[in-house]
Computed example of a mutant assay.
Amino acid sequence: MSGERTVLTIDTATETVVTGVVRLTASGEASTLAERTVHDHRRHAEILTTLIREVLDEAGLAGADLNAVVVGAGPGPFTGLRVGLATAAAYGDALGIPVHGVCSLDAIAVVAADRTALVVTDARRREVYWARYRDGQRTAGSDVAPPATLADALADQPVDAVVGPPAFTEPIAAGRAEEIGATHPTPAALASVAFDAISAGVAPPPLEPLYLRRPDAVELKDQRRKSLLPVTDGA
């Protein structure tokens, strides 16, 4: 049907690897033709290509049938994001179709699109990635902070719902907001967030990962370098 777009979606910003094939209508309605979600953050690189092949097969489509690729750009861990973005870029380049990067938190926020919401995901090191939304539009973030900091902020800037892993939503909401246990974006939500950009038909900007902080390997390397520096006396 004229105006429809068939989109491959990928997200590796959380511990769950997400991929799917989504049909977008001219009005922006998203229907998922096939999807895979695997909770295994240690095997992003090993399983992502296989999952993509599976969803295309299930949808009865080939790469040539796709109109665009949408990939979650984070925020998330360095290694996971690198795998997802590199894979999306490779598919787009091979098929000659645009690749749209979207904030993964924006896609998770779709479950509370009609409310004032705080969305969080696990940033490790006892911190969370977060963003605040009103009626589906991001009003603050994305950023990274300890859950206690966000809990304190709710007293001054209350929200209707806290969306994310229950281990984080419970202490942050603390009975002051509804908890919604959405831990990763869905393929349909990823495609929906990118709808305006896809329908505009213009070339998307280069993919930019939202790391929000340096990778662990770099910090450990810096710490090791500091430990090797000579100790000197001085004021």
Rank of each mutant, 00 (worst) to 15 (best):
132 R>Y: 06
165 P>K: 10
177 A>H: 09
58 E>M: 05
177 A>W: 13
190 L>T: 04
189 A>D: 09
5 R>G: 00
215 P>H: 04
127 E>I: 11
4 E>R: 15
69 V>S: 13
11 D>S: 13
110 V>R: 12
139 T>N: 04
127 E>F: 07
30 A>M: 15
224 R>E: 15
159 V>Q: 15
205 P>V: 12
221 K>A: 12
64 A>L: 03
81 L>P: 01
4 E>C: 14
163 V>W: 12
97 I>L: 04
20 G>F: 07
159 V>S: 14
204 P>R: 07
117 A>T: 09
94 A>R: 09
34 A>C: 14
139 T>I: 08
2 S>W: 08
189 A>T: 08
121 T>G: 02
1 M>G: 10
64 A>D: 08
156 D>W: 07
148 A>L: 12
49 T>H: 10
102 V>H: 00
112 A>K: 06
127 E>L: 04
192 S>L: 15
65 D>S: 06
9 T>W: 03
8 L>D: 01
51 L>T: 04
78 F>I: 01
221 K>R: 15
24 L>H: 14
208 E>T: 05
89 A>T: 00
179 E>G: 05
184 H>L: 08
193 V>W: 02
65 D>H: 06
18 V>T: 14
116 T>Y: 04
132 R>L: 05
134 R>C: 03
34 A>H: 12
109 A>C: 03
226 K>Y: 09
36 R>D: 11
16 T>F: 09
20 G>W: 07
11 D>N: 15
55 V>P: 00
196 D>P: 04
111 V>D: 12
107 A>F: 01
28 G>C: 15
113 A>W: 15
178 E>W: 03
158 P>N: 08
101 G>S: 12
8 L>V: 04
146 P>N: 08
100 H>E: 11
77 P>V: 04
210 L>W: 00
39 H>K: 13
98 P>N: 07
165 P>N: 12
122 D>W: 02
207 L>Q: 00
89 A>W: 01
230 P>S: 14
77 P>W: 02
219 E>L: 08
214 R>S: 10
165 P>E: 14
177 A>F: 12
176 R>C: 07
60 G>Y: 06
213 R>V: 01
125 R>Q: 07
54 E>C: 10
175 G>W: 10
220 L>C: 12
142 S>H: 09
157 Q>D: 15
211 Y>S: 02
164 G>H: 06
149 T>W: 03
155 A>G: 13
13 A>C: 01
144 V>P: 06
24 L>Y: 14
194 A>C: 00
73 A>S: 13
165 P>W: 12
222 D>E: 13
68 A>L: 09
227 S>H: 15
170 E>L: 11
75 P>E: 00
59 A>N: 01
204 P>S: 03
114 D>C: 05
15 E>V: 00
148 A>F: 08
13 A>D: 01
209 P>G: 00
104 S>H: 13
201 G>I: 05
77 P>M: 02
53 R>V: 08
180 I>P: 03
